[in-house]
């Protein structure tokens, strides 16, 4: 059965000792979490917990390993917004380029 598991399904596998580390939220992580909560509330109902988990799993094993926790959330949440056509690929691409350019204009 083990070979049929998907990458996120890791319960019961062997590993080393738990590294007991806390988490200090960075501002951008708090915003990811806040956007997720707002999209999931009763008023908007655009993103369920199950949908987010499915989208995180669909990022694939390679991205799952390479992205950190909130990066997975952000990528998965964005994919759902694109799937549902709440956002368009083109407008997102343009906006991301704009954000990046704005950053480039900042003084060092």
């Amino acid at each position: 059965m083990t070979d049929r598991r998907r990458h996120h399904d890791m319960g019961g596998l062997e590993d080393g000792p738990v590294e007991i580390k806390e988490h200090t939220s960075e501002p951008w992580e708090k915003r990811v979490d806040a956007i997720r909560s707002l999209l999931s509330d009763e008023q908007r109902n655009m993103l369920s917990v199950d949908e987010l988990r499915r989208a995180i799993e669909d990022l694939g094993a390679e991205a799952y390993d390479r992205y950190n926790y909130y990066e997975r959330w952000m990528a998965a949440m964005t994919n759902i917004l694109l799937e549902k056509k709440i956002l368009g690929v083109d407008e997102l691409g343009r906006k991301m380029a704009e954000v990046e350019a704005r950053q480039g204009n900042k003084p060092l």
Partner: peptide, 28 residues
């Protein structure tokens, strides 16, 4: 890359009146 994505998605959602900046602040 993901931080840029976060800012972009947040701004688009606000522009589309799906969420507001005030709601985002209150949620945080």
């Amino acid at each position: 890359h993901h931080q840029i994505m976060q800012i972009a998605v947040g701004e688009l959602l606000i522009e589309k009146n799906i969420i507001s900046a005030d709601e985002l602040r209150a949620q945080i």
